[in-house]
């Protein structure tokens, strides 16, 4: 952290706030991962880290390098796009795998999800 003496104060404060927000939300997400009781509750916890957590740290990084090099440093956008696109895919796969395994083992409390009936159209007919 040398050579930062002419780094503007407003940017330093903004970068710090974004960093603390992002890492704090990531930490809260993983605390939820420890705290929640069942797997299906735990699926919700890491999304805190991958949406606002990663977003805060990445925007902080973009801002820091843009001010430091006094040109727009946008390559962190790639990681942002990549993380936001891939996380839902992996969590969806995990959720499907979990419910498949729970059904195979005949665990209690798993909802029935019959595939035979047509959907009960009531108010939904107008929605399409």
């Amino acid at each position: 952290m040398t050579g930062l003496d002419d780094f503007p104060l407003w940017a330093a404060i903004l970068v710090s706030l974004l960093l603390l927000l992002g890492s704090g939300l990531t930490l809260l997400g993983t605390i939820g991962l420890v705290q929640f009781k069942s797997f299906y509750e735990r699926v919700h916890a890491p999304t805190l880290g991958t949406t606002c957590g990663a977003g805060g740290v990445l925007i902080a990084s973009i801002l820091f390098f843009s001010v430091l090099q006094s040109r727009l440093a946008l390559h962190e956008v790639l990681i942002t796009v990549f993380v936001t696109v891939t996380t839902p895919v992996t969590l969806m796969l995990l959720g499907r795998a979990a419910i498949y395994r729970d059904r195979i083992e005949g665990k209690d409390g798993m909802p029935e999800f019959d595939s035979g009936e047509p959907p009960s159209d009531g108010s939904s007919a107008a929605g399409g």
Partner: peptide, 22 residues
């Protein structure tokens, strides 16, 4: 829709049946 629901904390997409749209 799957990406939106899963990326939003608090809701998670679990299963979809294409034959009856549930």
């Amino acid at each position: 829709l799957a990406c939106i629901l899963t990326a939003t904390p608090g809701t998670a997409w679990i299963e979809y049946h294409a034959d009856n749209g549930r």
